[in-house]
């Protein structure tokens, strides 16, 4: 068919995949050989092929999270060969293609590992901790209706663009997965700095950062050591600068907010 590289040869690979029955049982790596993998396949399509084989053989297919398969929903979450979302930078697992691997390669596939992300099954983890952090303050408190005209608040293009860059976070959790401390700082900072930059978010900026950081700690994520692994592995390129904005927001809020609790 219309593959980009008609000369690319199919590959045979060895997969070592984390299998775990459920949250309460221990898991282990299981080895599966796969044959005839086209370099134009996406990584998840390669797993689809393996799963179809497993099904035909009557074995339990490998559970993994995925949905949009275009790199935007943030559902896919595989730790591939020691890297969150695999070896390509700026790429979600679903957008990773097999042309980045070689015939004969052994590929280790593990779930995101963090105390805050318990494994549901195989490669599927529970990332609801991230939702709870958002619920702690990742919003502007406006009800539907009764808002001013959209052009009533001019926002400098540079600010709007920067806020947009922070707002593109897809909440996949790769930052947590890649961080040696399983820290969620990059994730939290993306939302905090987006809303801190925009005039709409300024009214609640103090309570927002205090509450979101508190929730982050409650969920059991680690601390930030400024290794930069999170930003390096972020598939949408959320900048480390956001973490520093988060800290400034945090320090300013703690120093000046009326909140004594």
């Amino acid at each position: 068919m219309a593959g980009s590289n008609p000369n690319a040869k199919p590959m045979d690979l060895t997969l070592k995949v984390w299998r775990q029955k459920n949250r309460d049982t221990a898991g282990q790596l299981v080895t599966y050989p796969v044959k005839g993998i086209s370099p134009d396949m996406s990584f998840l399509e390669m797993l689809d092929v393996l799963n179809e084989d497993l099904l035909i053989r009557g074995e339990e297919p490998i559970a993994f999270d995925h949905d949009c398969r275009e790199g935007i929903c943030g559902m896919c979450s595989l730790f591939i060969n020691g890297r969150a979302h695999g070896p390509e930078r700026g790429t979600t697992t679903c957008q990773l293609h097999m042309r980045h691997f070689k015939d004969g390669d052994t590929i280790t596939i593990e779930p995101w590992r963090a105390a805050a992300f318990p494994v549901h099954k195989d490669l599927v983890v529970d990332r609801s901790a991230l939702d709870r952090i958002q619920q702690a303050g990742g919003y502007v408190s406006v009800n539907t209706g009764g808002v001013p005209d959209a052009n009533a608040i001019p926002i400098p293009k540079t600010v709007a663009d920067k806020a947009f860059d922070a707002a593109t976070c897809i909440q996949c959790g790769a930052c947590v997965a890649a961080c040696k401390n399983a820290s969620a700082m990059l994730f939290v900072s993306a939302k905090v700095s987006q809303l801190a930059m925009l005039p709409q978010g300024k009214t609640e900026r103090k309570t927002r950062v205090e509450n979101m950081v508190a929730q982050m700690d409650i969920e059991g994520f680690g601390a930030c050591t400024n290794t930069g692994a999170c930003a390096a592995e972020c598939p949408v390129g959320i900048s480390l600068e956001n973490i520093n904005i988060l800290r400034r927001e945090f320090i300013a809020a703690k120093a000046t907010s009326e909140n004594l609790a």
Binding site: V142, V147, I153, P154, A160, Q194
Partner: peptide
């Protein structure tokens, strides 16, 4: 028209011109 107002109020970062308007 109300939708755009609503989304901007929520902090949706729509594209803007250099003058700061949408």
């Amino acid at each position: 028209v109300n939708i755009i107002d609503q989304c901007v109020a929520q902090g949706v970062p729509f594209a803007r011109d250099y003058g700061g308007l949408l």
